[in-house]
């Protein structure tokens, strides 16, 4: 019943992104038969795990999961260990090692911190597919500072066509930011004014006032792309997907900026106006009257 999965996905597009993990868990418990469909289609925040063999951090998602274990891109080992966990063919594993190195450099250049992981798998038609994961978390140094997290999930498919390769890319970025200063911001400015001698009564009021609150901007956006690139050798796959993912992240970062800081803010100011609408209305009436007066 594909209908049911559609309903579950529609639901996940509406419910708060901050609760995606609990809500997916609920849906899986409600419809266990569709767990795989759901887990394969809904992106969840990436988990950071530590490779026991190398001590390096890596990212866990549905693509490097086998049962309850996750494969590390650094040691190729599953944690908890699996006897017969799925691993890429030796040829593809070689490419995976190089890809992890390359995207680690990419991560350092753009994220200046965080964790990255690349996982590749063989496809039945002879091609291969992969996922490039990037995650960065900002933890506030003091309670007043904003915090945030960025999770990138780039899933691609590569098909070789002679000296060319065709790539299909689906990119999802999950972005969350929390600010705890919005509620008290205004009052700080006010008491600063009060110290200057003005607005003494308001200063007294500000001293008596208690304010507290939180602003959360969270969500995810998904975009797709397809592109052909020349193929010299196996390593070309890394430069090709690298360029494609870099372009996509630049494009999506602009889009996120527009939606998070532009669109949602516009809706707030559409609900309530800072300026007095009644005054503006009266001014317009007055203007109309004046125009009529001049015309006469």
């Amino acid at each position: 019943m594909g209908d049911l999965v559609d309903s579950m996905l529609d639901l996940m597009r509406r419910l708060p992104p901050t609760h995606v993990e609990e809500n997916v868990a609920s849906l899986v418990a409600m419809c266990p038969d569709y767990a795989d469909d759901l887990l394969g289609s809904v992106d969840q925040p990436l988990k950071v795990l530590t490779d026991r063999a190398t001590g390096k951090e890596y990212l866990a998602c549905d693509y490097n999961r086998d049962g309850d274990s996750y494969r590390s891109p650094w040691s190729n080992e599953y944690d908890p260990p699996l006897e017969d966990g799925t691993v890429p063919s030796p040829k593809l594993r070689k490419l995976e090692i190089t890809a992890n190195e390359a995207f680690d450099t990419y991560r350092e250049m753009y994220y200046e911190g965080g964790v990255s992981s690349v996982f590749l798998w063989d496809l039945d038609d002879g091609g291969f597919a992969g996922v490039v994961l990037l995650k960065k978390t900002l933890t506030p140094q003091s309670p007043g500072e904003p915090s945030g997290s960025w999770d990138s999930i780039h899933v691609f498919e590569a098909a070789e066509r002679g000296r060319q390769a065709h790539y299909k890319l689906t990119s999802t970025i999950m972005l969350q930011m929390v600010d705890r200063s919005a509620s008290t911001r205004g009052s700080k400015e006010e008491s600063a004014l009060g110290k200057g001698g003005r607005l003494v009564s308001e200063k007294a009021e500000a001293d008596n006032a208690k304010r507290d609150g939180e602003v959360t901007l969270s969500g995810s956006m998904t975009r797709q792309g397809e592109q052909d690139f020349p193929l010299q050798d196996q390593a070309s796959h890394i430069t090709n997907t690298g360029k494609m993912i870099e372009e996509m992240e630049i494009k999506m970062r602009n889009l996120l900026q527009e939606v998070y800081f532009g669109k949602t803010r516009d809706v707030v100011f559409d609900l309530r106006s800072l300026d007095d609408l009644e005054k503006a209305r009266r001014q317009r009436e007055l203007q109309k009257e004046l125009v009529g007066f001049i015309k006469r």
Partner: peptide, 13 residues
């Protein structure tokens, strides 16, 4: 996509 703004503000004066 699915992007949400959610804010709380409590005041007592």
């Amino acid at each position: 996509g699915n992007v949400q703004l959610s804010t709380t503000h409590a005041v007592s004066l």
